[in-house]
């Protein structure tokens, strides 16, 4: 009797084994807009502090994100020597519709993020104008003081430093790293 019961239990278990078949599976890939978050574009807006009506831009735009097609736009930074610019930095995800402004989310999580500006061959002094809740700089808003006429590069890096942010570039992972050609003339 006991064994018959066991036999019944075992066979039921096997016959009705929860077969995890996904009903929603389909051969078509998911729509592109459904893909995980990406950063595809970086835009720098330079406002001349002496003449706020002049706004210069530098744009790095790779609408399909890393890999795939090459970036469609990669500007040089062209500024005038010996001037002071207010610089706003914007990040976008263009794979989303409508386009997602990622820099807004960076600001919301500013305690975990920091931008770094490393200039080489050109004299540019960068000052942070924004801070996070712990008074460490963020870098979405900066002030650039240009030196004499020269050519070089400006490397802009965004580090994700969850719990490790200390104001230096060392900790964390790199979310953005763009090396712009910079011309002061």
């Amino acid at each position: 009797m006991k064994n018959k019961m066991m036999a019944a239990i075992v066979s039921v278990l096997i016959l009705f084994a929860a077969c995890k078949k996904d009903k929603d599976l389909q051969p078509l890939p998911p729509p592109l807009t459904n893909s995980p978050e990406l950063i595809t574009s970086l835009k720098l807006l330079f406002t001349d502090s002496a003449n706020t009506s002049t706004v210069l831009t530098a744009y790095f735009n790779d609408p399909d994100g890393p890999g795939g097609n090459a970036p469609v736009q990669f500007d040089s930074i062209k500024l005038q020597p010996n001037k002071t610019y207010l610089v706003n930095l914007l990040l976008f995800d263009q794979t989303k519709n409508p386009v997602d402004t990622v820099s807004k989310e960076i600001w919301e999580e500013r305690d975990e993020h920091m931008f770094f500006f490393q200039h080489s061959g050109v004299t540019i002094q960068t000052l942070y104008l924004d801070v996070d809740t712990k008074s460490l700089p963020v870098g979405l808003s900066t002030k650039w003081r240009t030196g004499s006429a020269s050519n070089g590069t400006s490397k802009i890096t965004l580090k994700h430093q969850a719990g490790t942010k200390n104001g230096t570039i060392t900790p964390g992972e790199t979310d953005v790293e763009v090396l712009f050609q910079t011309k002061l003339n």
Binding site: S41, F60, D62, P66, A70, P71, T174, V176, V178, L179
Partner: peptide, 9 residues
């Protein structure tokens, strides 16, 4: 290497 917004890969 390929240029991306995350640097060169």
């Amino acid at each position: 290497p390929e240029l991306t917004i995350k640097g060169a890969f």
